[in-house]
Design a protein around this nucleic acid. Structure first.
Length: 425
RNA sequence: GGAGACGUGGCUGAGCGGUCGAAAGCGACACCCUGCUAAGGUGUUGAUGGAGUAAUUCAUCCGGAGGUUCAAAUCCUCUCGUCUCCGCCA
């Protein structure tokens, strides 16, 4: 949720943020109007309630004949108090419901929609092949490392089996990510993959993108997480954190589930877009002022990982209109995909500023001012199953075998994923 | 899944329906004393929201949600969580 105090102070900036996001700016005035109404109602309630309490005190020490008089008075007052309370609560609920719909205030992101991103940097050159490169699915069949057909038989479309060295490569990648995260001071967390509704709502995934999330059927009301970001954000729900030693950084490992509801026909081949995958995700809780620096660090760690995998890539600054509701700013790393002649998103790191923490009531102890301000949260991908697509395509050989990047070799124990003799011959 | 116990402030732990935002202890912080260390003394010490330049002041919060009452941490109902025993089981 956005900071209503801030919106009250800077309504025009809030409106500009909405415009940059290509959203309706009128909602700002609407929410401020409800906020004013709520405060008026609340004040009225508090005054009346104070009166009621004062009278109540008198009753305790009143003599018998005074008592019955006072009781009559307070009974009537109690009813008024009840009504005023109800009015105030209704207005508050209305205000909050509206405020919940407002996405985070953007932070220096380029204005515009999906195609208005800015390229921040590029690294490496797309490899030129002296043979016709195969796509990751053909390579998967040749090396017998990913079984999409049987995945569909068992789990339906967009499911797959990682097999043999393919499965090993996945673990290798994730383990390398875990090592890098740990070496950078991130604490490893293996998280729940089912979470309660309030956790899902708190991270901002139940707004407009609720259709992307799996929900369990009736007697159970939990959700399957689409990223461990959800679980880690919830990890410190309702807590006051000690950030005196710097940001609290976690690396969450989890399986992730996505319905991919709005993406029929997109990336249908292979494992680029699937319902289930594994991911190591970075997550940080920090002071809002530190969030920009932490954001840079996460981006740098993502780039280091991709470089270890020896993939050509670029970094883009996502445009405001393409940001999720929680993010104030987002950088994606996209690796080159030779057979599609385009870049494919491998990582994404968002600064959610105080948006998630406010919803989840996560604060930190500020010893200087002796207050507990809301903290900022950030997240960033460190490695996923999807990276294998890019590794396959960029490191393939003419016979369909795949070279394992040097940095990954210690984790998997082989230098290449060999072509199957039956297909090779 | 069945039976029972419990859920209070950073922690431990009291709390008759009104004077309880809540005793006490610990911890933390400040100051004092003591020639180091250690110990001792005194005081301060919850959060959120509103009003005020401010001192201050009002309201709300005792797992959560309802209810009874003029008044609820205290009574009632439901719910969640923790622990113990049993059943089942990776």
């Amino acid at each position: 949720m956005i900071d209503l105090k801030w919106v009250r102070a800077y309504p025009n900036l809030a409106k500009q943020s909405q415009i940059d996001r290509q959203e309706d700016p009128a909602i700002i005035d609407q929410v401020l109007d409800l906020d004013t109404q709520y405060h008026q109602a609340q004040t009225k309630f508090e005054e009346t309630r104070a009166e009621q309490k004062a009278l109540g005190q008198q009753i305790a020490s009143a003599s018998a004949d005074q008592k019955s008089q006072l009781l009559q008075k307070t009974k009537a007052l109690a009813e008024t108090v009840g009504q005023l309370k109800l009015q105030s609560e209704n207005l508050q609920a209305q205000r909050d419901a509206l405020a919940y719909e407002i996405p985070n205030i953007i932070e220096a992101a380029p204005a515009g929609g999906e195609t208005d991103f800015q390229v921040v940097s590029t690294y490496g050159e797309p490899r030129s092949f002296d043979f016709e490169p195969k796509d990751h699915l053909d390579l998967a069949e040749i090396t017998d490392t990913i079984d999409v057909r049987r995945g569909a038989k068992v789990g339906g479309s967009r499911f797959y089996f990682m097999k043999g060295l393919g499965a090993r490569l996945e673990f290798a990648l994730l383990n390398m990510a875990i090592d890098q995260a740990t070496q950078n001071g991130f604490t490893l967390l293996n998280t729940p993959t089912l979470v309660l509704p309030e956790i899902m709502a708190g991270t901002g995934f139940l707004g407009k993108h609720a259709a992307e999330v799996y929900k369990l059927a009736d007697p159970d009301d939990s959700y399957l997480i689409g990223t461990s970001e959800v679980a880690i954000a919830g990890y410190h729900k309702d807590e006051i954190l000690d950030l005196s030693n710097g940001p609290l950084c976690y690396a969450g490992f989890s399986t992730c589930y996505r319905r991919e509801a709005g993406s029929h026909g997109k990336d249908t081949r292979g494992i680029i877009r699937v319902h289930q995958f594994n991911k190591v995700e970075m997550f940080a809780f920090c002071k809002p002022d530190d969030s920009f620096e932490v954001h840079k660090k996460m981006l740098a760690m993502e780039e280091a990982m991709i470089q270890k995998c020896e993939l050509p890539y670029r970094v883009i600054d996502i445009a405001a209109g393409d940001l999720g509701s929680s993010a104030a700013r987002k950088f994606d790393c996209e690796a080159w995909l030779p057979t599609q002649n385009r870049y494919l998103e491998l990582t994404s790191t968002s600064n959610c500023t105080t948006f998630q923490a406010r919803r989840l009531s996560i604060r930190y102890k500020d010893v200087e001012t002796n207050t507990n301000p809301v903290c900022a949260t950030l997240n960033g991908t460190l490695a996923t199953t999807r990276w294998i697509v890019s590794i396959f395509e960029n490191h393939q050989n003419a016979d369909g075998s795949i070279n394992v990047p040097a940095a990954l070799q210690p984790y998997i124990g082989v230098k290449e994923l060999g072509a199957r003799p039956s297909i090779n011959s």
